[in-house]
Simulated scan of single mutants.
Amino acid sequence: MRLWSKSDILRSLNSNEPDTLGLDPMLDEASQVGEVSVDLRLGCDFLVSILTRKPFIALAGPDAERRAVETYFQFTRRDLGDRFMLYPGQTALSTTLEYVSLPTSVYADLFTRSSFNRLGIHLSTALQPGFRGAASLELVNHGNNPVELVVGSRIVQARFFELADRTPYGQGRKYYGDVRPTVSKAARDGDLLQLDEVRKSRFEH
């Protein structure tokens, strides 16, 4: 696995080949592309966590007994340059402004820029080879003060790693092609169903 340098990033961005890096829109390539990373911007859509009468979010058990994860979040939208307030302890799901297309031999790590880490905002996201979509940003304010975020600002850095083999990211994946923030789909994980069956069988015996 090899970390891409600035020349690798620019070569792939400007290539006419089909299986190359795509970031659209790139509002300012000169300021966004660094020596070993690309700064990506905060998108316009947000799903903000809210308090409900339910004591917790259930991921396992019969569907009829579980409240939909979507009901624990409220959608809101801002335009470029608008402000979005992230309060201490709050989770807000957003996306990058850019639509990301990864080559099938390239994996990417996303993490908050140091300037935002110093404000108490931390996130990390992994993008599999062949990923398509606006990258998910799971924003959490770990600090003691509300932080005012500016929509369209450079909030995360992406590093790209080239693999020896091509590994396409199939359309059957849970978050493939998303362009707006999407709540967790952990309840669809097959291992939760298996563990629920194990639990039932234990009580039956």
Rank of each mutant, 00 (worst) to 15 (best):
D196L: 06
L86Q: 08
L93W: 04
L102F: 08
R180I: 03
V36T: 12
T76K: 08
R118F: 14
P181Q: 07
P181T: 03
D178P: 00
L195K: 09
V36Y: 10
S94D: 05
L192C: 11
Y175V: 11
P18V: 06
S7C: 10
I121C: 11
L193E: 04
L59N: 10
V100A: 06
Y72I: 04
R118Q: 15
P25H: 06
R83P: 04
G89P: 06
G143N: 00
W4K: 02
F131I: 08
R113C: 14
Q128I: 04
S49W: 05
Y87L: 11
S105E: 14
R11A: 13
D165H: 09
S7E: 14
L193Q: 08
S136T: 05
T76F: 04
S184L: 13
T125F: 00
L102Q: 10
D109A: 13
D196F: 03
G190F: 02
R83Y: 12
A158C: 03
N117K: 15
M26D: 05
H205Y: 09
P146K: 00
V156M: 02
R77I: 04
S37N: 09
L10M: 12
D79H: 08
D8P: 00
E70H: 06
L40V: 09
L21N: 08
Q90T: 07
P88Q: 10
L86H: 07
L13S: 10
V151F: 03
R53F: 09
A60N: 13
R67W: 13
D19R: 04
D191L: 02
L80G: 13
R173F: 07
V36S: 14
T96K: 07
R202L: 12
L59Q: 12
R180N: 02
G143E: 00
T182G: 02
K185A: 07
R159Q: 03
I57R: 07
G22N: 07
P103Y: 09
T167F: 00
L149S: 06
